[in-house]
Design a protein around this nucleic acid. Structure first.
Lengths: 135, 135
DNA sequence: TAAAACTGTAACATTTTAAATTACATATAA
DNA sequence: TTATATGTAATTTAAAATGTTACAGTTTTA
């Protein structure tokens, strides 16, 4: 799971922030996403690990936010669910005897680091509440 | 090929801009990347289609830049080789009967569009010459 | 005009990764 | 004590990226 993590987590959090006082079940959440509940629980495990949500086991159990939606930024979710944005690397290690091959990955990385800084900055300005209000 | 396209193309162009007057063979280029020449030719086909480089077939053939490196921006290469940066979508279509499910993809897309604008803007400020000079 | 050294591309094979599912242990409410 | 949840490991399936083979066409050079 890489490509869907951010989207699924944001979807979960959006639903949780619509019902901040209820424990929502993974089955219910999965229903909105048309996804397998186990997948949802995996993402929730990640959110719990980072103290964004809490879960209650057993009957009538489920998950709810631990933090007000206005205090969660999309950058927080980004960092929790996404390694790094990159425009890619070649799979193969380049030729270290070529001056370009020797430094290409380091120069790409530095470019990608700059891109990630910009993205983080932008996402930091958007709260989960902002996002939730688009629905 | 998705993840490596931008990196491989930029690598190729960096080499071409180091030797702007020579036709470099796909074998030579592949050697710097430790890659199969066919893969290199595939990316070159894309560059040709967009009039960034020209190739000469036959003995002593190869590829060279059609445009000065200072006039090629990384944004141009980005647009030629990368669909769009995204933080991902869920694979499954969400539930259209849920207010969140109904609009989640459109709201994600709009967020990702903003991100891409920022990236394009940033890459537009870096020329292939700028990049080549880091080596 | 034939050999050598290239490009161009389609077709296929392999590898990797994401995504989905199954299975089952554990917890809690009623 | 039953029904309804979560938690998580293990496995399977599907999709996508990556790599390779094969071969036709082009150009240079002797």
């Amino acid at each position: 799971m890489l490509s869907g993590k951010f989207a699924i987590t944001l979807h979960i959090l959006t639903l949780l922030s619509k019902f901040p006082d209820e424990y929502l079940s993974s089955e219910f959440l999965a229903g909105s996403m048309n996804l397998h509940p186990v997948l949802v629980r995996k993402e929730i495990a990640n959110l719990k690990k980072n103290n964004i949500v809490e879960s209650k086991e057993g009957k009538n159990g489920g998950t709810k936010l631990l933090i007000p939606a206005k205090d969660i930024t999309l950058d927080t979710i980004f960092k929790l669910t996404f390694e790094k944005v990159t425009l890619g690397f070649s799979k193969k290690d380049p030729n270290p005897n070529c001056p370009v091959g020797k430094k290409i990955n380091q120069n790409l990385q530095s470019l990608y680091d700059d891109i990630n800084d910009k993205i983080s900055n932008q996402l930091h300005g958007i709260s989960l509440m902002d996002f939730e209000q688009k629905f």
